[in-house]
Every structure is written in C-alpha cells, then in structure tokens.
C-alpha cells in the first residue's frame, strides 16, 4: 500500500435497517472502512452476520421499500446512499460490479449466456451487435470457459455450477469495473472448483487492476488472498486489520472462535474442529452489550451491559471491539 494510492471505496458509519412486521431489524450497523485501488479486502462472518446486506448496500442494490440506509458510501467519489436507481445505473457495471453467491440462481435461465454478457456491453458501452459478441466470447475465454464460441449460445441449464460461476464473473467484468464485490462467490461449488474460481478471481484482480471486496464465511479463503480483513458479527465490525495481523494477533474471542471452526492445513489431519457454541443472535432483539457476549466464555457483566467500541490494537490499522480482549501472546498459536 503506497501512501499516495487513493481510496476507491469509502464506507462511513453505514447502517442498514429493515422494517419488518415484527419491528426494526438492524442488519448492518455503523460499518466504516476504506479500500484502496488494487487492494483486496476480505469480509468474514457467519451467515446472518450482515455480510450480504452490507455488500448490497455498498452497491445500492437493495430495494427501496421498507429499508433505511444511513451513513455514506463513496465509490470512486460517487455517493451511493440516497442516490436514485437511474443515477446508480450509470455506475453499476462500469465502476462497481458484483459476483453473486449462487450461480444456479443468478443467471437468467431462459436467456443464452452470451446474450447475458453482451447485453451489458451493448446497453452500457453502446457496442454494436458484432463487436459485443466478439468481446463476450473474449470474456468467456478470459474466465477460462473452453470452446467459448460454442458456449456463447448455451443456456445456463446446460452448464455445470463452476462454469456458470465463470459466466457470472465474465458478466461482472464485462465493463471493466474498478471495484468488484464478490459475495460468497464459491459457496455453492465443489471444493476443487472453489479453489479454481478463487484463483481466477485473484488472477483477474491483478491483471485488470481491480479492487475487490471478497465476502466469505470461510477464513481459509481469505487468508492468502486479501491484504486486509474485516470480521463481522451481528451486523457490526468486531475486528478489522491487516490479514496477517488478524490471523496472528486477533484480540476478539469471536475471531478466535471463527479461526478454530475452520479447517487449517497446519493442523494434523483428523484434528477436531471446534464449533462455535450457541447461535447467532436474533437481530430483532439484540442484547444491550456486546452481541457476542451470550456465546462468549470470557463475558463479564460489562460485556452484557455495555457495547464495546472499536479500539486500536498495537499494530497499525488493527482495531477490535471487546472489553476483555485476548492477550497479545496468542500470536504463538499461528506459526
């Protein structure tokens, strides 16, 4: 990170609240972070922690009804929060694009895949039919789809999950976005395919000089692929910092629990994975204090009554939200 690289994405005190029949549901609360050009940041957390909502709020894709968004999201200088759909449309695809979670549902089942890619090129970049088709085939080749000229006319149902996710990526890349939001891009795929897709994303990020927000529940996915990491719990950032710092010197017990629950190559085989006890909290009825307190073995009365603020740790850019942080000596655990 050179000091002169500018912030492509600035998220400041971002909150997303859903109005449900049972009351207000704070899906994302007071999230702030920045992302520089060419950087990849990871967002991790269990399902229900607000990662997907955060990604969609950053992009401004949430439907307008029954949703309240506060705070600020600047993408390449454009304020997303409060912008109308037609305004946002000018930035979607070209400034910011998204790779969706489930390739089985994110492609239009009755539209040929080639058409789904070159539609973007023709509508957004005003390309002619022929050049859009040529570029779409190029993109299909770029994301590693064999015999892309023939596959151009295939329907999504004729492709495997991994191939479909490559098509989704090709569609997202069609207008060379500066920022790519990848929302659990490998959840629905086989393990071997997962690695291929993630490597493809990393490769493309470098080749096309994109910034990437990589959202996942799997810490193994982000370990080597991101420079910084955000850990979310119950809609809040509970720990943020450089990826290696988080792995080596995490302070928040929740981060530890996440690490313990994900398989690691360094462990001998058949090591028991530790499940996080309890369940994620009901967002409609959050505790007053730390949301993780009910599941935390270190919790004190203060944890239950007072919400911990994000506090800086010893490393630069590393903060955590915890009243009883783990001692710094935990570094020995990661080797």
């Amino acid at each position: 990170m050179s000091p002169d690289s500018r912030h492509l994405l600035e998220v400041d005190q971002l909150s997303t609240t859903f109005a449900t029949p049972h009351g207000l549901l704070p899906a994302v609360s007071e999230v702030s972070f920045t992302l520089q050009e060419d950087e990849t940041i990871g967002i991790v957390g269990e399902s229900g922690s607000g990662k997907t909502v955060l990604a969609r709020t950053i992009m401004g894709l949430q439907p307008m009804t029954n949703i309240q968004v506060e705070g600020s999201v600047l993408i390449n200088g454009f304020q997303v929060v409060g912008a109308s759909d037609p305004e946002k449309r000018k930035h979607w695809g070209t400034d910011v694009a998204m790779v969706f979670q489930d390739p089985m549902t994110s492609l239009n089942p009755v539209m040929r895949i080639g058409k789904q890619i070159d539609e973007t090129l023709r509508v957004r970049l005003g390309m002619s039919r022929q050049s859009a088709k040529a570029r779409a085939i190029e993109l299909l080749t770029l994301v590693g789809i064999p015999s892309s000229t023939e596959r151009y006319d295939a329907f999504p149902g004729e492709l495997s999950g991994g191939m479909r996710q490559r098509v989704v990526i090709a569609t997202a890349l069609a207008c060379s976005p500066k920022l790519l939001l990848a929302d659990e891009p490998t959840t629905g795929l086989d393990v071997t395919i997962q690695a291929q897709i993630l490597n493809l994303l990393g490769e493309l990020q470098q080749r096309l000089h994109m910034s990437v927000v990589l959202i996942t529940h799997d810490l193994g996915v982000v370990a080597t692929r991101t420079s910084r990491l955000i850990v979310m719990y119950a809609g809040r950032v509970v720990e943020i910092g450089e990826t290696r710092d988080i792995f080596a010197h995490h302070r928040m017990p929740y981060t530890r629990a996440l690490l313990d629950s994900s398989p690691r190559i360094s462990n001998p085989s058949h090591t028991r994975l530790l499940a996080i006890p309890g369940r994620p909290p009901n967002l409609l009825n959050l505790p007053n204090g730390c949301s993780f307190a009910p599941r935390c073995s270190f919790a004190t009365d203060q944890c239950h009554n007072e919400r911990p603020p994000l506090t800086p740790s010893s490393e630069p850019g590393h903060s955590f939200a915890c009243w009883n942080p783990l001692p710094i000596s935990t570094r020995s655990e990661m080797s």
């Binding site: 894709l61 979607w92 694009a97 994110s106 509508v123 207008c175």
Partner: peptide, 21 residues
C-alpha cells in the same frame, strides 16, 4: 429472483429488465 438483482447490477434500465429478463 436473484438473476433479476444480477441484471440490475449490470446497470440496465428497469424497462429492459422487465421485458428482457
């Protein structure tokens, strides 16, 4: 459906999404 959200994320118009997608 998710593919409609994806079509929106491509920056195409609401009208086009309705008719084409």
């Amino acid at each position: 459906e998710e593919f409609i959200t994806m079509a929106r994320s491509k920056g195409i118009s609401a009208r086009r999404i309705m008719w084409r997608h």
